[in-house]
Design a protein around this nucleic acid. Structure first.
Lengths: 238, 238
DNA sequence: TTATATTGTATCAATTTGATACAATAATGC
DNA sequence: GCATTATTGTATCAAATTGATACAATATAA
């Protein structure tokens, strides 16, 4: 097959690290292939007629059931030894195919890494036709991932940690309205360290990107916290 | 030709933004193709038997004559409309070839962007067999670049500006020993704004990454500044 | 020897951050 | 009702950082 006869670009793929927040810890979506014991990040190939970013978005929307999604590209992985036809062969075999050795998906791939921060509770993890299951796993307790996918997760974590200082990252991890404590928990989960309650509150409020709403009465025997939402207009202007 | 018979990966390339510092302003290396009026960033393809990063390094070492080089990956460009066979055809024509329409270099490419900060004075810009010339251009006065190369330069600049806060970036732009003023000029050129002399000096010195050497007597009628070098051991530990 | 431009550092004010304190609740139990 | 309890929102003051200015210490020229 000539390269240009392939519906997809050859030698390039994307992989995504999709973060969700349970209220206590960060989790990522990991899929498992049928009859292989192989765990992988959701990823895919780029059609010749679509943008790289759109290809990644489409893939993630299918895996999560979400209709809008924000992706951030963080790194491209191109080591020679990251490509390995064995997993793909095992995946095909697990599905009952026998893949010819010269099949384009067994060739070497350079993969573009994207991360996404999404609302844990709005997601419906959806397996694709090759995978048994797709599930949330705590970033502190991942199954062994195939190829270099563990390195990809590590880089994604580094990326959101540095991006946290620049952009208000909580926007997509939390529901529309949230309390200051929930927002702080997001930051703590991402940075993996406790933050001072009062300093955090002062600093976030002084950024002037939150809108204060009504109070949230949970039934707990204490002062009710205010609900906040992000002021998207002001965030745009940053 | 089957994809796997090609010495290079298909559909993937790299492009590099090579920054040098004249003492006053930032420049980048831009090459011009023979008989076409086309200007482009130095870039290339990845051999099937080499790492992505090594491919980029090798390319830059050839273009600059440098024996060691540090590259930072900053973004991967994958828009559908960034690919355009016309420039490559014109380049081939300029060299006297006629390229068949199904040649792999005329196919769509996703390109990985790297930047490098190098010592302006140590470089011997070296054209390749396709290009007429390779020259330094001020980032404020670039020729029109082909395809999306202007966007690539813009992204590279954003990247070094944010990286400047994290890593001591001047290391490669300056000679081994330099004055505080020279270092400040580097920061000013990258950030495109003036910095307070005294605050800059205090902040850099408090980072404890510089070694102070002898004074530099230039012949000017004023107090001679100290020379400094980067303390590479301490920088490693950051 | 004096004049001049520049460097290195001190000084003090202004701002930001860290640490602590405390008043204001929203239930609960009596 | 009313004291109790956990948590929230904000004030307060100290500590650290940064901004702005001042000034002494040169290296050369005149």
């Amino acid at each position: 097959m000539l390269p240009s006869e392939n519906k997809y670009l050859t030698n390039v793929s994307f992989d995504t690290v999709i973060f969700g927040f349970t209220g206590e810890e960060l989790k990522i979506l990991v899929l498992e292939y049928q009859n292989t014991g192989l765990f992988a990040l959701p990823g895919g190939y780029i059609r010749r007629d679509e943008n790289l970013l759109d290809a990644a978005k489409k893939g993630i929307m299918r895996r999560t059931g979400l209709k809008t999604i924000h992706l951030e590209q963080f790194h491209t992985f191109g080591k020679l030894n990251r490509s390995n036809p064995e997993p793909s062969k095992r995946i095909a075999k697990g599905l009952g195919y026998e893949m010819p050795d010269d099949h384009w998906v067994l060739d070497r791939f350079i993969t573009v890494g994207y991360y996404s921060l999404i609302n844990y509770n709005e997601v419906r993890p959806t397996p694709n036709k090759f995978s048994d299951s797709i599930n949330w796993y705590s970033i502190n307790n991942l199954p062994p991932l195939m190829m270099d996918h563990e390195e990809i997760v590590k880089k994604a974590l580094e990326a959101i940690r540095t991006d946290l200082g620049k952009k208000p990252i909580g926007t997509n991890l939390l529901p529309e309205k949230f309390t200051m404590k929930e927002l702080r928990k997001v930051y703590e989960a991402i940075l993996d360290k406790k933050l001072r309650r009062t300093t955090f509150q002062r600093k976030i409020l002084s950024m002037d990107i939150l809108i204060r709403h009504e109070k949230l009465y949970t039934g707990a025997a204490n002062k009710a916290p205010y609900l906040y939402s992000f002021d998207k207009e002001k965030i745009e202007k940053l």
